[in-house]
Amino acid sequence: MTDTAVQQLIQFRNVTKQFGSLRALDSLSFDVRTGESVALWGSNGAGKTTLIRCLLGVTRFDGDVLVEGLSSKRRGKDVRQRIGYVPQLMPYFDLPVGEMVLLITRLRGATPREGLELLEQFSLAETRRNPVRSLSGGMRQKLALTLALLGNPALLVLDEPTANLDANTQKELLGMLNDLKRDGRTILFTSHRWSEVRALADSVVHLEKGRILERGSVSDLAPERDHVSIRFEMDSELIGRAESALRTAGFIPFTTESHITVAVQDRAKMDVFAVLRAEDIGPRNFDMEVDA
């Protein structure tokens, strides 16, 4: 293994995947450094999951993906040994949680003690005798994360990890992932939600239609992506004028009897105040909520 391979934990090299006449991935090349948390961000059908399948070596493709210098095409099993994988939704296995942990423990060369400790850590120890299929969506995702950490893999790969979870469970899982990130774990995850990318990633690869649209750090891309909702409280006779002025300026306000709310990109928030000031409209109060 070369130093470059260690520093660049994953190297995507001209990865191209064709489904019939559809080019799902078009010559993608980028690297993921050790300890980095990278989001593959894009809409549905952008090619995120297909790229994960190439990384895992479970689909045929052109080009190559190297993990610690090992090709996922030729050394798929060795590559998967280095990857802890969390699917979008942990499948409905019939076997009990304890048996599932034991199975993956054996396959990943971990110790049963490690499995038990992780179950305790993620508050799943009491579910050991329950079939996996009987767990709630959130519990199953926590189990998937537990299983992914068995054998202490160098890389954690997550495919839309919170897509099917309620807001509270999303927050809890993202908290766990952030703890892992702070411990120096390399994370590659897919998401179509900026809020999730914002919460977990250091850098972003923006994919659309199988191509990289942009690549950069979250802080570089955030001003373009972050949105804020500004809610003004004002006298009811001013609401109509304010709405008209904001619409003329290109905003889409939402009004009630005493409030007017506008959602804008973070970098454009001062423009809203400027519009109101130009019309000599003074709100009584305002509050602001960051959508990200």
Binding site: L56, G76, R80, P87, P91, Y92, F93, G109
Partner: peptide, 14 residues
């Protein structure tokens, strides 16, 4: 159909 095969193939097995 259940997705369990895809999950198992993402493990270090062939």
């Amino acid at each position: 159909e259940q997705g369990t095969l895809a999950y198992m193939l993402a493990q270090p097995v062939s």
